[in-house]
Design a binder for these strands. Structure first.
Length: 475
DNA sequence: TTTTGAGTTGTTCGA
DNA sequence: GTCGAACAACTCAAA
């Protein structure tokens, strides 16, 4: 009789779950557990109520899915190693299965767990599950690690067809059901938050989102993905964060779309695939360069002398900078726990290169608000925006918020949704109310906006800040 | 070893 | 308003 513990962490699904499948194949009975890690809940600065709420929804869904198989999912709270020790002793389990995780905290935690149980003669199996291709398998011809996306992608695509299809789910699960420990009361944390997510957790919700995206929107992804006013993206980010959908399922479905002779618009599918490869790339970077978690990827940009003006930071966080597209993005983040990729870039560029604030401040704030906050991807995105990351572009890139606004929210529909005090402005004014004010404050007031009262004056002048940023970066 | 081609998502300037 | 060139001349990865 072999009894195995299946430790769920960022893989809150039954379907095509590598660790779970491995455990089922080699055990007579399994005991699935999820541990609320006290170290994370109590001490981590990057705690996000929206993210925890999503996690709780996903856990409820997972619990129900197990119940349908007459399996009880165990919940406990504490230090993972202690909780697992207790469970192993209580149940006499002879193996522990979980899926690999590449963040430094998780890596340390898992190493300690592995060493402890191996020394006690308990098997430990860490499975590869989170990505299509393992970071250790992608190397340049000289056996170096890639630091530029495009050649990485080219090599990655050579192995695309080798990514396995999802494994069919076993009909029966035999489990050793132990007394269910009370689900920790975390709902209060979520209730205290004003964030109202538009995304629900759980594998069912993930599958529905993916099917809806596959049915139509993926074909328009290339042309529409950059417009935050359109519903053009997959919205799967939080599901990929918590593993409520299998990445192999996504790749397998994409593969078959690309093989279809009649596929309407392969460009949309290919562009979406490329975004998933960006995800693979940033995990790859974190895996091979774990130091990015704590500072600049480019050593020469580690010592920037940021101004770090706290008043500017507060205005940015609150969506009160006087730049409508920036404020709309920040308010979307605050209200829903999610914001469009284009907006993430715009507000990040604005924080670093207009407000001259350390990108790590923004990175942390995003983690505190996002429903999908993922260290590898959030860090990669922020380092890109701050120009400290792997971006190979030779020229210095500073977004112009007004141009970005005109280009990607041309009729201002996104701004009107999240900055309603500007809703009365005509399209041509909404991207820069201050320039209208400079010509005629009365003209602006006739549209219902008194600057400084209804909506703030710009807290900085982009043109001046741009010059300061160039100097600060010594370029 | 040296050379060659190319790099997510840009902006500004001046015609 | 639109368009092409300049930005500044790096670094990576493959040939």
């Amino acid at each position: 009789m072999k009894r195995s513990i299946v430790w769920h962490r960022r893989d809150l699904r039954l379907h095509d779950n590598t660790a779970l499948n491995q455990a089922l194949k080699s055990s007579d009975e399994i005991i699935p557990i999820f541990i609320f890690d006290d170290d994370i809940l109590n001490q981590r600065q990057d705690f996000s109520p929206a993210c925890v709420r999503f996690m709780l929804e996903s856990l409820e869904d997972l619990e129900q899915a197990y119940l349908k198989k007459s399996v009880l999912l165990v919940f406990d709270r504490g230090k993972p190693l202690e909780v697992l020790c207790k469970l192993q002793e209580e149940t006499g389990a002879s193996a522990i299965f979980f899926n690999e995780d590449y963040e430094s905290y998780a890596h340390k935690r898992d190493t300690a767990v592995s060493e402890h149980f191996k020394s006690k003669g308990v098997e430990v199996h860490a499975s590869f599950d989170q990505l299509g291709i393992h970071p250790k398998h992608i190397r340049t011809q000289q056996n170096n690690v890639y630091t530029v996306f495009t050649p990485f992608k080219k090599t990655w695509l050579n192995s695309f067809n080798g990514i396995p299809s999802p494994e069919p789910f076993p009909k029966d699960i035999k489990s050793h059901n132990i007394k269910r420990i009370q689900l920790p009361m975390l709902e209060d944390i979520c209730k205290a938050s004003s964030v109202e997510p538009e995304i629900s957790g759980g594998a069912g919700a993930a599958a529905a989102l993916w099917q809806a995206f596959l049915a139509e929107r993926i074909y328009h992804y290339k042309t529409q993905r950059d417009f935050p006013g359109l519903n053009a993206t997959s919205r799967l980010s939080a599901h990929l964060r918590f593993g409520t959908i299998s990445i192999r399922q996504l790749f397998t479905d994409i593969k078959s779309l690309l093989e279809e002779k009649t596929s309407k618009d392969k460009e949309g599918v290919e562009t979406f695939l490329s975004e998933l490869i960006w995800r693979e790339f940033y995990f790859y970077i974190l895996y091979h360069f774990p130091q990015v978690e704590f500072g600049s990827f480019k050593p020469e940009l580690a010592g920037i002398n940021w101004e770090n003006n706290p008043a500017f930071f507060e205005a940015w966080k609150a969506g009160q900078t006087g730049y409508p597209i920036v404020d709309a993005g920040m308010r979307q983040l605050n209200q829903t726990g999610w914001t469009h990729n284009r907006l993430r870039m715009i507000v990040a560029s604005f924080l670093c290169k207009d407000l001259l604030i350390d990108w790590r401040w923004g990175e942390l704030f995003f983690m505190q608000r996002l429903i999908d906050g993922d260290l590898a991807l959030n860090n990669g995105g922020w380092q890109w925006a701050a120009s400290t990351g792997t971006d190979a572009q030779p020229y210095f890139r500073i977004f112009n918020p007004e141009l970005q606004s005109k280009k990607f929210d041309p009729n201002g529909s996104f701004i009107r949704q999240f900055v309603p005090e500007l809703a009365g402005l005509p399209d041509k004014y909404i991207h820069n109310p201050y320039s209208v004010y400079q010509k005629s404050p009365l003209m602006l007031e006739s549209c219902g906006v008194k600057l400084g009262k209804d909506y703030p004056f710009p807290i900085v002048d982009h043109k001046i800040q741009r010059e300061k940023a160039l100097k600060m970066y010594k370029l």
